[in-house]
Design a protein around this nucleic acid. Structure first.
Lengths: 216, 216
DNA sequence: TTTAATTTTTAGTCTAGTCTAAAAAAATAA
DNA sequence: TTATTTTTTTAGACTAGACTAAAAATTAAA
């Protein structure tokens, strides 16, 4: 498994989460910030290794084996994120680039010991679930804040967008995982909503509400 | 800095420790398990970047900058080794391959926080000194067990050979860092020595004694 | 259903890092 | 000091992974 192969598998895995059926060459190219022709080359290679199913012009799907490999990389990524935040005092908007490197370290023992050292965490600092050794992910039944209605209540459990700028915005507003939230009002015109967190009320845009997961 | 460049710098750094003056192409090739022609190519590249001084047929020496880069990689390697042993229950003969990967992770913050998290350790699990941020290494004034004479005493502080097989041998014999040792007798014929550790006496060959560092 | 636009693939090129084989320089021996 | 051996470098080829430009297949529009 080369670094590049691993990154392609991860990208396909994430795209499969959002879209059904074969993932298009262009979609992968965009996600990987590379060119479609490069994607075609790599897909052929992954197909040879039976990590993806591929029919020309029809896009790709991960095989069972490919899915396992990808889930394992994501498992490592998220466990390292927990480590960075819990043990090394990183903030949740600083961890991504480093975890992106650490996820490629190869050692079964390392990752299992790390898991234990961290107390077998179930979610990373952004609220995303950590796959287990067999690639099983506790499925995300949580809903987007956007879908709540007036007077609905819940707990913030995750974010969809993990970009540094978004996370910094949340920190500034005092929006953090585990906080209780209540929808005070919802504006039908632009879907913005007035929310309450810890007795403080303020308004957020639909764009923000569309990137926060809530457990009801 | 590519992975390959980093590995060459590290190899040259280690070789400079043992040999004075320019490090030969062949010596690097042997250490890196590659061919002399590949070494020549890479040396040219490192020379362009002013990380080594190079004169055709005369071998290489690290520049001040090159030495700093190399020391930094070794710093990372050794800090990760401490982490693996102290926090993740690795044994000292298991850490090398994983640390070899982890040493290439790029993040200033990561390594400084790790250093702090580990309590600013001075030595790795094999007793080797950990360079500081500026590449300074507390110089190894310790002597090889081989150089001790009858009735000399000391404390085991390091090993020269970190191969898994050697470390396993030491574990089996109960030879560990920090243990007090006394030379009971030394055989002039083959330089083997009878030693005592914790009231137990046994004989070791010169080869073994040549790979253990002692603080007198 | 033929044409136009879009997507995907192919063909060929480039770079980093490796290799083999041969040439050149340096070190050693006669 | 010349000949031989060893070391180092050069020349040229190979692979992975990327790229550009052009061809082919598919999809959408007229």
């Amino acid at each position: 498994m080369t670094l590049s192969e691993e990154n392609y598998l991860k990208a396909i895995y994430h795209l499969s989460d959002t879209f059904d059926g074969g993932i298009s060459t262009n979609a992968i190219a965009e996600k990987m910030k590379t060119k479609a022709s490069s994607v075609t080359d790599m897909i052929k290679k992954l197909s040879e290794k039976e990590l993806v199913n591929y029919r020309r012009y029809k896009g790709v799907e991960l095989t069972v084996e490919g899915k396992l490999v990808a889930a394992n990389i994501i498992r490592k990524h998220r466990l390292w994120e927990v480590f960075l935040v819990e043990k090394l005092n990183f903030t949740w908007d600083e961890v991504h680039d480093v975890a992106e490197q650490l996820e490629h370290i190869k050692s079964e023992k390392l990752i299992n010991q790390l898991d234990e050292f961290l107390g077998f965490p179930k979610r990373d600092p952004h609220g995303d679930p950590i796959p287990d050794k067999d690639g099983n992910v506790s499925n995300h039944t949580d809903v987007l804040l956007m879908t709540l209605n007036k007077n609905d209540k819940g707990i913030i459990v995750g974010v969809k967008d993990s970009s540094s700028s978004f996370l910094k915005y949340l920190d500034k507003q005092g929006i953090a995982l585990g906080k209780k939230i209540k929808v005070i009002d919802k504006e039908p015109f632009d879907n913005s909503m007035k929310i309450r967190i810890k007795k403080e009320e303020f308004t957020i845009s639909q764009q923000i509400a569309n990137n926060i997961y809530i457990k009801k």
